[in-house]
């Protein structure tokens, strides 16, 4: 940085070192502000303002005619269904992300092990779920689960297993929405981990093999530490997206049976739009923030730490 300034200043002989420095700083910051202006406009106008407006809405009564403060939140605290939504959102996000991370990790390992020649083909096939628009692929899943026509149950019947109530039983419905989420999201983990695996120097493994390390030891002492960063980042990002999921539950179960599969977003839609209680819907949505804020803190700490490492 210092060199840059010196060079720039020396290029302009009529100015003193000092005033040239300030001029340069001003120019640089002006340009900087101009360059981020579009971003600022998008964030301020289309995210911050509506988010603030949502917060305002959440403080009104149902007819939006009266300020009620925190009454909507206090109301939610007393509702059994709301706590079920909180519980289900957390279960959904955690189980789905762990599932995605696990499948992604194992699949990435498997692809990395086979000869390079065939890797693209396998990788390409496994990426397909990630590429189909989720709202549409979820419809396909729904048709697989549909109680009367379920093609999965047809297979189970062929091998003599009882039909599984995929969407009608609370346990299986929760299982199903998580399964579909894993199906859609795991390929993303796969490619992230695959790239990370490729960046681990081969010599590390060779050295470990010579030292007599078995496969588990190599995994534990080399692979996992080398991939720590990327695992952390993908998991945290995925939790954010999974937590806010809307499409899958909306298409697959609409929150049923007995509200057991509702997530924050679908429940907010149910009370806000469908029951015409927009302030309450906004309050439900805003409940995602505390959880997400914790995640944001973790990610930011992580990012900063890595920035310092650089």
């Amino acid at each position: 940085m210092a060199t840059t300034i010196a060079i720039d200043a020396s290029g302009d002989g009529t100015l003193t070192q000092r005033s040239a420095f300030w001029l340069f700083m001003r120019r640089k910051s002006t340009i900087g502000v101009l360059m981020v202006l579009p971003l600022l406009a998008i964030i301020a106008g289309l995210v911050a303002y509506p988010a603030g407006y949502s917060m305002f809405l959440s403080t009104l009564n149902k007819a939006e005619t009266k300020f009620v403060g925190f009454a909507n939140y206090l109301f939610l605290f007393k509702r059994e269904t709301f706590w079920m939504v909180v519980q289900q959102s957390i279960i959904f996000a955690l189980v789905a992300v762990v599932g995605k991370a696990f499948i992604g990790f194992v699949a990435a390992h498997a692809v990395n092990t086979i000869p390079t020649k065939g890797q693209r083909k396998w990788r390409g096939m496994m990426l397909i779920p990630w590429v189909i628009p989720p709202a549409l692929s979820t419809l396909g899943w729904w048709w697989l689960f549909e109680p009367t026509y379920s093609a999965i149950n047809w297979v189970l019947a062929e091998i003599g297993v009882d039909a599984i109530p995929w969407l009608s039983d609370t346990f299986w419905a929760r299982f199903s929405v998580i399964l579909v989420n894993i199906w859609i999201g795991a390929p993303f983990f796969l490619i992230m981990y695959l790239a990370a695996l490729k960046s681990i120097p081969e010599e590390l493994y060779e050295a470990a093999a010579i030292d007599g390390a078995n496969a588990w030891q190599r995994l534990y002492h080399i692979t996992l530490p080398m991939m720590r960063n990327i695992i952390a980042i993908t998991v945290l990002f995925s939790i954010i997206v999974t937590f806010a999921n809307f499409d899958i539950v909306r298409v697959l179960t609409q929150g049923g049976p007995r509200d057991s599969t509702h997530l924050f977003a679908t429940y907010a839609f149910r009370v806000g739009i469908e029951s015409n209680d927009i302030p309450l819907g906004a309050s439900v949505s805003l409940f995602m923030f505390p959880v997400l804020a914790v995640l944001a803190f973790l990610i930011l700490r992580n990012v900063r730490k890595r920035a310092m490492e650089l």
């Binding site: 109680p147 109530p165 969407l167 009608s168 179960t253 049976p257």
Partner: peptide, 12 residues
């Protein structure tokens, strides 16, 4: 009734 009714949509 069929246990599936707990998951039927309007087309079920």
């Amino acid at each position: 009734m069929d246990p599936g009714v707990y998951a039927w949509d309007d087309a079920g």
